[in-house]
């Protein structure tokens, strides 16, 4: 079981990295979701899957009588899922606002903050807010 899950982690992680590297913000989000799941699965497996008994100690006993399933990785994963969900929400909104503002989801054409050699003036002035006189960023790499 552990071996199968380990391979699954690897496959999901590989898919997520492919998506994240594809240079498109939408694909990056899907890659991020997959990567989070791969990592959660990895933590789950690292807690070992040998025991399936629920981690409950009998009344009046200080220690469990038999070996129990490891509950700690699940607590860790739960925390990671909650945090990951909050981050995902933020990333969705950030990317949506970025798309509204820059007019592109292609990371190669996002050059406002770091203008190329040919375009030393763009983005260098502070306080520039949604300046429409500049060429839209979606017109290919600089």
């Amino acid at each position: 079981m552990e071996t199968a899950l380990a391979f699954m982690c690897g496959i999901i992680a590989a898919a997520s990295i492919y998506l994240m590297l594809s240079g498109n913000l939408i694909r990056f989000i899907f890659g991020l979701v997959l990567a989070t799941n791969a990592v959660n699965l990895l933590i789950f497996v690292s807690g070992r899957l040998a025991e399936t008994r629920p981690p409950l100690i009998e009344e009046d006993a200080a220690v469990p009588a038999k070996a129990l399933a490891n509950a700690l990785p699940q607590a860790l994963i739960l925390t990671a899922i909650v945090i990951g969900f909050a981050l995902l929400t933020f990333v969705f909104i950030l990317f949506y606002r970025t798309y509204q503002s820059l007019g592109t989801v292609d990371t190669e054409s996002m050059r406002i903050a770091e203008p190329g050699q040919s375009d030393p003036e763009a983005g260098a002035t502070p306080g520039e807010r949604d300046d429409t006189s500049k060429p839209a960023a979606g017109e290919g790499p600089a």
Partner: peptide, 26 residues
Amino acid sequence: GREKQQFDGGVKYVMINLFSTLLFIT
């Protein structure tokens, strides 16, 4: 500040930092 270059810089910052956090928890 919701300026154009902030979104541009912010997206890169967020992407790489999220990836680093994933590595950390791995």
